[in-house]
Design a protein around this nucleic acid. Structure first.
Lengths: 170, 170
DNA sequence: GGAATCCGCACTAGAATAGTGCCGATTGAG
DNA sequence: CTCAATCGGCACTATTCTAGTGCGGATTCC
């Protein structure tokens, strides 16, 4: 299913909270008390974020977590990657380490392998395009986060009639 | 996990194949023979697509499936919805039927509810923006499917200037 | 020394996913 | 009219993923 796990959800809650108190050291206890979140799982999410280098942890009394970088420099993509691994779409991609080894036995005939990789890339860009800051900023109009003035369909350009050279993303 | 199920994968394979033979009636057997896909599951995916109104089925000998509309008019969003339900991101949204009933007990304090809804919307637009036709068209440059002339980050508009991307995965 | 806090391991229960089998209903062809 | 191809529906199993919880150890401040 195309959705995030709770672990990620908890991690996001924590990160948004940490963004509110940027610069400070906040304990997992504090976060756990503020939101109805199983503290134990919250701790796991925080650990994962720490291991991914997104959070700095200080132990001992008065310890806690803090952002290692500015909230502007942390993307949703990184966060999701840290919490549940880089998002893949199909089994083909899951193995194969992306086109590296042609491990996918369907590869030769599989008509969707490449298209689906594009899809993943697109979704990935979407996640990469959102900073923790913008996520945490409640003053931003929801529709403005992703939506642009242009028609979404036009942006993503559906039928791909115009095929302008694209910035080599990946 | 942020990924599609195999069922969806199989459904997409079938749809791409059906797009290649647009107008014709193709049996699930034929598809199953062409690609190394468990025929049984393929049949399930096809059934789901039929029930969603994306495919027309004819029974009996020489029966099979065909697209109900032009491949241009079918979006990935519809397909995914048919095969695994409308993508949600968090539990908050899962219940609540989206902001309708305030079922989410975290709602009052949950700092990510709204932002995450935006995320979902963005991903949804992404899926809605891709037609089956463009997905099936192998001549389209992969990067062009989603990418536009504009910088992705600019489109999705974020403060972040795209960090160096870690190629490592899994 | 005690309290607060992060750290790491292991375990259970439930849900989702992947896959398979079987039989009935429908329909075209011989 | 019978046979074979094909869709349609039901039920079942095994594996993996997800969610949640417990416990004890290591650090650090007071």
């Amino acid at each position: 299913m195309l959705k995030l796990t709770r672990r990620t959800e908890y991690g996001l809650i924590a990160l948004v909270h940490l963004t509110d108190r940027e610069g400070e050291v906040v304990s997992s206890t504090e976060i756990g008390e503020r939101y109805p979140v199983p503290k134990r799982l919250l701790a796991e999410a925080l650990k994962a974020l720490q291991q991914a280098g997104l959070l700095h942890s200080t132990r001992g009394a008065h310890g806690g977590y803090s952002l290692t970088r500015s909230a502007d420099e942390i993307t949703l993509g990184e966060i999701v990657t840290a919490l549940e691994g880089r998002p893949t779409l199909t089994s083909c991609e899951g193995l194969g380490a992306l086109q590296a080894s042609g491990a996918c036995d369907v590869q030769h005939v599989c008509p969707i392998r490449t298209p689906l990789q594009r899809l993943r890339t697109g979704m990935w860009n979407l996640l990469e395009g959102v900073s923790l800051r913008s996520l945490a900023d409640r003053s931003v109009n929801p529709t403005d986060l992703f939506a642009s003035e242009h028609e979404p369909a036009a942006i993503l350009h559906v039928h791909a009639r115009a095929l302008p050279q694209a910035p080599g993303l990946r």
